[in-house]
Design a protein around this nucleic acid. Sequence first.
DNA 1: AAGGCGGGGAG
DNA 2: CTCCCAGCCTT
Length: 348
Amino acid sequence: MNFSRQLVSWYLTNKRDLPWRQTREPYKIWLSEIMLQQTRVEQGMPYYYRFVEAFPTVFDLAEASQQEVLKLWQGLGYYSRARNLHETAKYIAGELSGVFPDNYKGLLELKGIGDYTASAIASICYNEAVAVVDGNVYRVLARYFAVETPINTPAGIREFKKLAAEMLDHNNPSTYNQAIMEFGALQCKPKNPLCETCPLNNSCLALQQKKIGVLPVKLKKGKIRKRYFNYLVFQNEENTTLLHQRTGKGIWHGLYEFPLIETKEQLTAKEFLSAEEVKAAVGENSTVQLYNEMPVVHKLSHQHIYARFWLVESGNLSTEAIPMDKIEDYPVPVLIQNFLNEYEPSDY
DNA sequence: AAGGCGGGGAG
DNA sequence: CTCCCAGCCTT
């Protein structure tokens, strides 16, 4: 119990002044929690401001189009979060009269809300006694109690959830949950934790056992897949081009990109241009020029994408063609946005 | 139980 | 380069 009181005490004097700490509105807490999943506070903050500005209430978010929502989310990654956010907003506005479930169990039913987020909203907004377990909590508990169970296994998840629940301050779940997370983010950091000034440094088992550097234990995941993307940037006298929306499974679901031809390996320009698939895609009376000889390397968590852009000068395009100056209305991957930022049609 | 899903920052 | 971030969903 001393553990919990120390954390809360530390929190009250060290907490950051974050915008979502100014409110207990479930809509804004929900918004912040979804955005901060696997995302640093500094990275999510500008997006939070933009969303609150554009969609002050769950009804505003519900009434927006998916394209608007994805566009505002562009660059934040894990785009299923934005799609689920939008779907849940429509559900709450339409089916629940805009009122969020007021407990863990009810929140857990919502799309995009898992154990962590349901616990966070329930405790922060309604002071329900449910413990959050995020990356910070894993680290703080693993170190303080010198728990060596890998955190990314079912056994580890169960063990840490139980431990977190035991340590929860039932008198103030909201403050305690935020305290342990903030403590993990600022004091008990992944690298170079501030053990010298830590209020728990006389009782931390990992510190006593010199295991700070190896805790928490996390099993490594698989290898990185290499992919070779060839984007066809159509151009013509009408200054229009083609964009396709990605559908189905895989990365960037719902986002737009230029027509894509993926190859198993890096082809030479001659090989690429002589491929039947490519000739069919660019058409008969077109000239094709490779924009970047050196592929752009775009690194994702589990994929490395080697991207080349091919400028295709062609005649009139189909009716689905988009004016070049309208591209900015479409949500696109950062890889595409970077190209657009650098590319000037006058270069051609 | 394992894999997929972004992008960026720190060390 | 590796690690990891206020995780969730699907298979």
